[in-house]
């Protein structure tokens, strides 16, 4: 497949197919926010460091500032707008796991993937995953508690 400078991409975002005209050089973050008006994924460092732009690609967390939109053709993209009343969202509210809220969508997407993939995640695994995101307000303790509460509820329901 070769493309010209602007091309049509068919992206599947939050269960809906979208036809987008964008540059192959456009990042997924740029396309989500500027073409699809899905502004939940946040631009932070734009360098893959802060994790504010984290979305799920085929269920796994990816920093959308570091991936080309064209790479996601044929894959399933989930943004924070696609999570509805998920356990991790509820847990963030219950544990006050945010202050300014700018990093929250990225943290929630990462934490959601973690709790889905590793319902028995150890403390080390939780720490390893959460290190991918930065919270300038330092709500780390509350975020960790929120993640652990979701894992605990999953176990109680088993």
């Amino acid at each position: 497949m070769a493309t010209t400078q602007q091309c049509e991409m068919l992206l599947t975002v939050n269960g809906e197919a979208h036809s987008v005209i964008a540059r192959p050089a456009d990042t997924l973050l740029f396309v989500l926010r500027n073409k699809l008006r899905l502004t939940g994924a946040k631009p932070g460092c734009l360098n893959g460091d802060c994790g504010a732009c984290t979305v799920l690609i085929d269920g796994g967390p990816i920093k959308s500032c570091m991936m080309l939109a064209i790479e996601t053709v044929g894959k399933t993209i989930t943004t924070i707008e696609g999570l509805k009343h998920s356990p991790i969202q509820q847990a963030f509210v219950e544990h006050f796991a945010f202050q300014c809220g700018y990093c929250t969508p990225g943290f929630i997407m990462n934490a959601h993937a973690l709790t889905e993939k590793y319902p028995d995640a150890s403390d080390d695994v939780i720490q390893e995953w959460l290190e991918s995101n930065i919270c300038r307000c330092t709500s780390y303790r509350e975020i960790e508690q929120a993640v652990k509460s979701v894992l605990l509820k999953k176990h109680r329901n088993d």
Binding site: A2, R23, F30
Partner: peptide, 9 residues
């Protein structure tokens, strides 16, 4: 943002 265009193959 990548500040230049490229083709993708």
């Amino acid at each position: 943002m990548v500040p230049f265009d490229f083709t993708y193959h």
